[in-house]
Design a protein around this nucleic acid. Sequence first.
DNA 1: ATGATTTGACCGGC
DNA 2: GCCGGTCAAATCAT
Length: 370
Amino acid sequence: MEQVVLINELTQGKELAKLLRNHLNPSSSKETREFLIQRILGIYEKALSMLNCGGGGASSSSMVDEPADQFPSTFANISPRSDTSDLDYKDQCHKHAYKKRKTMPRWTEQVKVCSGTGLEGPLDDGYCWRKYGQKDILGANFPRGYYRCTHRHAQGCLATKQVQRSNEDPSIFEVTYRGRHTCSQNSQLAVTAMASSSVPPPPPPMSKDKRNQHYLIKQQEHEDQNQKQSQEVTMFNFGSNAGLRVKTENLDDREDIFPLFSFPQTSIEADNVEENMFIASLIENNFMGSFSPKFISPATSESNYFPVSPSHNMNYFGSGHSVQTPESDLTEIISAPNSVTNSPIGEDFDFSLVNVDFEPNFPFDNLEFF
DNA sequence: ATGATTTGACCGGC
DNA sequence: GCCGGTCAAATCAT
């Protein structure tokens, strides 16, 4: 079985290498090449780790002994693990957990929030964050907030972020992300978004404040779908594509975290549909091969982060453009241009793509989404 | 009751 | 010793 997986991985690597060769011409976008390289490296990494760690299987929770600069497919293998204070570091394949943590990918975004709308505070970027600290920082007028993924304990998701309000312009929040989300919920989100978006997602939500955000999440958890919820949910989607970003900078490890699916929309050109389809199918295969059934159904409890019915998805991601209609309130509070490239979601996408099963019939004809 | 936030304490790196 | 990052008990919100 492991051998089959291994062969599958290597075969994919081979195909991707071929693809890469085709993309060596100047007209091909750098992002695409980068993506392919990352993908290939990831496959090798995965294959090697399978061999090194006793062939634990593609999505086994062991073997994470890899540089943090690896990319998502391997990141996805991070096993549940808790904070530094916990004891799981003994785990054989986690010898380098400390190191890994230290070398986690990190990138910063600047997010502008218009005041006066009542929607202030760090934006909601589509993830569930839990604040675990706040600190006055030397030279900063505002304290820095420390957040970690809500699913850290439940799923060992090590993603964290720091939110620092800008000195010069208090309406700008500098958000530094660390680590990738390995929690299934986010994968689900990403997939949901992808599966249902034929147009770029609307601007990201900006919750009034964190409490509001949590309130929303709770509501969804309870599947209490009243009007208010759907209203808020409309605002609750991927921040990334959407845009609060004023500027994305980075950052150390920039290339390490290069988003698998961060193709600017130009990178997958219309004339390359076939190849893109191929990539998509590779991805699809990957999903099918690497995740537990839990993730197959969009209707798991976790997925309640978003309502999962197709009709809802339509609302969220605008298959019917409904999200954009109330054009509006959202656009009013968002002042940054869209950018896909460095978005954390981009990278989350790649995580999700690697880890989550798609519906077998997932319509990959929405490649422009990438 | 449960889960999130607050905030002083603690820890490691420099 | 300073500083940034994290922990965890106390507190708050639902």
